[in-house]
Design a protein around this nucleic acid. Structure first.
Lengths: 207, 207
DNA sequence: CGTCGGTTTTACCAGATGGTCAAAATGCGT
DNA sequence: ACGCATTTTGACCATCTGGTAAAACCGACG
């Protein structure tokens, strides 16, 4: 029986960690339906029934992953400081998001897969927590615009543009490398420079 | 037996068209593995064996779809005129790509699904045809920069940014609508305006 | 040593899925 | 209406997949 969460054995911690790591790897590479429990179990060094001893179902495992992810995903947005220097704050956000694409591409792809397929399992979180947060940030940005600290822009589409531009380098990784000519090319330095220029020119008041 | 492509019956044309339409719908919504042949057949108003009479396998059906897609996808890029007014040409490209996201979101998602999962079936086309085309365009853009018609930017990342920004509205549709507050909101007019501003500010020479 | 909670394995199942095949039905030119 | 090629169907398979049950294993502690 699954013990009632009181304490967690050393073995338990080790195995759940290995499973989540393996699940992230497999789900992000093949999507929910493309991934098989067997594949994940093997990647975690366990047998399928053994994995199912720790997580009651494939679905539950996937959900656990997504829940943990959403928090990680929203953190950088929360970290923006309404009192800070506007352009600096936005550029810092862009930088942080781009670093996340570089350092956690699997998480990005897991998220992308879910959204593309209609977000069947996280739709509530999108129109709930996420929308609330974005609405807040949009207010802050509008404040910055009103005080003349940055140029006029639609704050929602500004945020969309940051998301799409930064996540592109994780989600469409193969395309980027195909066009740039091979896996040995590191697109991130140039991307970082490009995005900084882009948003600086976009947001600097008056032209 | 499959007749040897000599002519195509009326029935043949009607059914293959219905199948491709249904396949696009289902593949783009659920991904390759998430889609079932039965589902596609039903959506096309046929039985599964009947569908397999027209396409030898699920894989072949998917490939047919992807092949046709790539052409459609590259067309707007080819349509750019090196002799045209640089900023105008780029803005027109952005506009065309955004219209494609609005009018053909399923095609966009089909493509996105494929790339995210490592482009198992179109990797050659990416590093072949696509790369060649982008290399050409990068050359043209560099020419525009050299002649002072537009500001200095990395042409490759400029192209990436156009792709990511425009396709975002198709691929991440649910997220956009969740944040904007419901399916009745049409994000495209504002997106169009935002992107025009963005690239105008980015590319107008001297600041 | 024994036993007891926690862990792992072996064997298994039911349903889904991609695909095959031969026969039946249908269209179509004459 | 006839005969042929095309199209459609129904029955069927092998395999894969998520999940279960129960037995075996293991390590700590009395």
């Amino acid at each position: 029986m699954q013990q009632r969460a009181r304490t967690a054995t050393r073995i338990q911690r080790k195995n759940t960690a290995a499973i989540l790591e393996a699940a992230l790897e497999v789900f992000s590479a093949h999507g929910y339906r493309g991934a098989t429990v067997d594949q994940i179990a093997q990647a975690a060094g366990l047998s399928k029934p053994n994995l199912l001893y720790y997580f009651p179902s494939k679905e539950a495992l996937h959900m656990t992953l997504l829940d943990g992810l959403l928090e990680t995903w929203l953190d950088p947005l929360k970290a923006m400081d309404p009192e800070g220097e506007p352009l600096e704050e936005i550029l810092a956000y862009v930088r942080r998001k781009l670093e996340m694409s570089r350092d956690f591409p699997r998480e990005s792809r897991l998220f992308a897969n879910e959204i593309i397929q209609g977000a069947p399992r996280i739709a509530p979180a999108l129109s709930g927590e996420l929308k609330a947060l974005v609405d807040d940030m949009a207010g802050v940005i509008n404040g910055w615009i009103a005080s003349g600290k940055i140029a006029e822009v639609d704050p929602y589409h500004l945020i969309f543009s940051i998301w799409s531009l930064t996540q592109h380098y994780a989600d469409f990784d193969v395309q980027v490398h195909a066009v740039l000519g091979g896996p040995e090319v590191d697109p991130y330095p140039a991307a970082q420079a490009y995005l900084e220029t882009l948003f600086t020119r976009m947001l600097t008041p008056k032209g």
